[in-house]
Design a protein around this nucleic acid. Sequence first.
DNA 1: TACAAATGCAAAGCATGCATTGCATTTTTG
DNA 2: CAAAAATGCAATGCATGCTTTGCATTTGTA
Lengths: 68, 68
Amino acid sequence: MNTRIPELRKQHKLSQEELALAVGVTRQTITSLECGKYTASLTLAYKIAKYFGLTIEEVFDFSDVEEF
Amino acid sequence: MNTRIPELRKQHKLSQEELALAVGVTRQTITSLECGKYTASLTLAYKIAKYFGLTIEEVFDFSDVEEF
DNA sequence: TACAAATGCAAAGCATGCATTGCATTTTTG
DNA sequence: CAAAAATGCAATGCATGCTTTGCATTTGTA
């Protein structure tokens, strides 16, 4: 899943590790989210969005989620 | 995690199975979310929220997510 | 240039989301 | 009341999120 995490990190001048610390995960987790290795859990998505003062929908790109 | 899924289901007069079908999971998954057995994935949370025309934050209750 | 900080990336293992099956109980409806 | 639909709930297994460790490469800075 695409995210605006790299963009938001740069705007706030944060390293992957600083963001990781801020939301309580490891740097590797942030890396994996940024390069689309896997999708964040709901609570992690919430923490990241809230950290940047945004909603989950503003940070994560759901355009590839299939319709039912 | 608490959710408004039971409430929203009743408003829309949907059974657990109908909602499950609509968002592409099994009835057991909906049951588990409703009784707090586990937390939805981000994509499932999105599908459920979108199905009801709401945002993720409007459907799921993040008040128990710790601050960092 | 030299060093430090930041990032990329991979493997193994644990934790959790979800499917599948199955059955018992409750609720609805004819 | 009788049958069907809806819900509760448990066990097993697979898929995926996340951690941990470690090292190589790139980027920033004195």
